[in-house]
Design a protein around this nucleic acid. Structure first.
Lengths: 210, 210
DNA sequence: TTGACGAATGTCAGTCACTGACATTATGGT
DNA sequence: ACCATAATGTCAGTGACTGACATTCGTCAA
């Protein structure tokens, strides 16, 4: 869900032929981008290439995705809603860091399911500044916002006054980045959930470092 | 210093007329960008506008700065070397989080000195996604790298294996972002160093949150 | 002083991501 | 069948950035 682009009130049943076709072009665009990025690299692939490979006009591509990078991270961007739901599902009396670890564990399963795509994202992010930049600026920032409001809710504090929600969220996102990098170095042959949990756990000991 | 762009080995004395002129065009470009961003907004200002206001060719602008955003963040980008030096200057037996707080305090003074520019950066980042994105993707990531190597050095661990350096660095950068936001909300009429220190201090208690 | 060398800049043409405006086609409801 | 409108197509831009080559200007040595 979440078309990555703003489309307000659909007056059409969510499962009409129209919406199926729309979803289909969206999927074809993602698949085309995937394959082209894989085959000829990110920078060497133009949005026109992608559109033609998906057999749509370039303009249509930009109606579905706001930027070229969004094509790559469509799935991870939507995953922030999964994160939000997972967080809200944790019991309210659970310590915040525990709740985050549990929610991330749940999310981690979903993430790693698409192993090949995750590895592609990682490869491209490692070689292309535009990609890693977009990840930090858009994807990670989006996840972070979800974390912040969830944490502030639990602590019942104002995240504009109390620095802890944002600081904890930042630490958690860094932990996820580390876990992802380690998982990527291992070519996906590692327990992502365990890696992430270990990194998240380390947050508790940050103040005691020599 | 660090010209924000790669120029390897200058065979010319660092204080020749040539280098002074070069530095001068660089400064004029920054000043021109500053004023135009202030007057007509970020998006409404083209790189050609800036170049003409500084009385150079557009091509020259892009020889001094790799992107339009870099014009805005030239100073903050260079500040990462100040951060590195400040960190290295801290005694080796000092606990890491303390060292970071002290180094940031030192850095904070430098930062807040240019109050008007900081407020301009904040205003633009708050209204223009391209600006806030660049900040996260380039500036903050750069500072974070400095933090990571400094922390890993002190702990004598491999930052690729041990998640703690990167996690702590991420938390610290988030703390700085919070402090900057609070300082900005107060229109610069607040003790930035105190705000940053309070946010950084909160890292120690992250694991104990209910 | 002069002349050679090279750094900084200028000029120009091009690529490519992205956008606004308007025309066309395809669906869904009537 | 008919109309409203969602989805797409077409086209002509704008603007950031780049490569190639010409020109100017500071530096230094003979």
């Amino acid at each position: 869900m979440a078309t990555s682009v703003i489309d307000p009130s659909p007056r059409v049943p969510a499962d009409s032929r129209r919406s199926r076709k729309k979803q289909d072009t969206r999927n074809r665009l993602i698949a085309a981008a995937d394959e082209l990025f894989e085959r000829q690299g990110y920078d060497a692939t133009t949005t026109l290439d992608i559109a033609e490979a998906a057999d749509v006009a370039q303009r249509t591509l930009f109606r579905h995705f706001p930027t070229k990078e969004a094509l790559l991270y469509a799935e991870l961007d939507d995953a922030r809603f999964v994160l939000r739901d997972a967080l809200n599902a944790r019991p309210n009396d659970e310590p915040v860091l525990i709740a985050i670890r549990e929610a991330m564990a749940e999310l981690g399963e979903t993430i790693v399911a698409n192993r090949e795509r995750r590895l592609l994202e990682a490869r491209l992010a490692a070689t292309t500044p535009a990609v890693s930049g977009h990840f930090r600026a858009v994807i990670q920032a989006g996840w972070e916002r979800e974390l912040i409001v969830a944490i502030a809710d639990r602590l019942d504090v104002d995240p504009m006054q109390d620095p802890r929600p944002e600081v904890l969220a930042g630490a958690a996102m860094s932990a996820c980045r580390v876990a992802t990098r380690q998982w990527t170095v291992a070519e996906g042959d590692a327990d992502y959930v365990a890696l992430a949990d270990r990194a998240l756990e380390s947050i508790a000991g940050l103040g005691a470092l020599t």
